[in-house]
């Protein structure tokens, strides 16, 4: 146990707390001291009574606010869950679209290969053969009497 000396509204108080809780106790006493100093006049007990009432009022309001915020948290959680499920659906659709695109690309490549023009060398060879045949015809035309 630790001994702690507190000052509240100018009056000293000796209290005990568990070891290690001293700092926390000083912080809380600071809050009570600030509130108690706003209440002037009256006996020590009356001053502490009003301090306790004011702090209880603040705690009550804070709890009410927290309770009011809970439904908003619920709707936010629902919205997040909905967004997550939509994102998952969109990912699935994207994966399907990618698979479809790959399949179409493969089909396109196959179609391109099926309709590929004959190799250029075939045209060149055919042109050379035609040149030879026309040259032979020219020889014949020149030899005609």
């Amino acid at each position: 146990m630790a001994d702690v000396k507190l000052q509240i509204a100018g009056r000293p108080y000796d209290v005990h707390c568990a070891d290690g809780q001293e700092e926390r106790l000083h912080q809380l006493a600071g809050i009570v001291d600030t509130k108690a100093r706003t209440i002037q006049g009256g006996t020590e007990v009356r001053q502490l009574l009003f301090t306790a009432l004011l702090l209880a009022d603040e705690a009550h309001e804070a709890r009410a606010k927290a309770e009011k915020a809970e439904p908003q948290s619920d709707s936010l959680r629902a919205a997040v869950a909905l967004a997550e499920s939509r994102e998952a659906a969109a990912r699935d659709a994207l994966r399907e679209a990618e698979a479809r695109e790959q399949a179409l690309r493969a089909e396109l490549d196959a179609a391109r290969q099926a309709s590929a023009p004959p190799p250029r060398n075939a045209h060149d060879r055919a042109l050379l053969q035609i040149a030879e045949r026309i040259e032979a015809l020219a020889d014949r035309a020149e030899r005609m009497p």
Partner: peptide, 24 residues
């Protein structure tokens, strides 16, 4: 789409042979 070296050579030969036929 023709290979320019091979095809232009062949086309030149064809043109010359046709001219020879026309002239004959």
């Amino acid at each position: 789409e023709l290979d320019l070296d091979e095809s232009s050579l062949a086309i030149g030969r064809i043109e010359r042979a046709l001219s020879r036929i026309e002239k004959a």
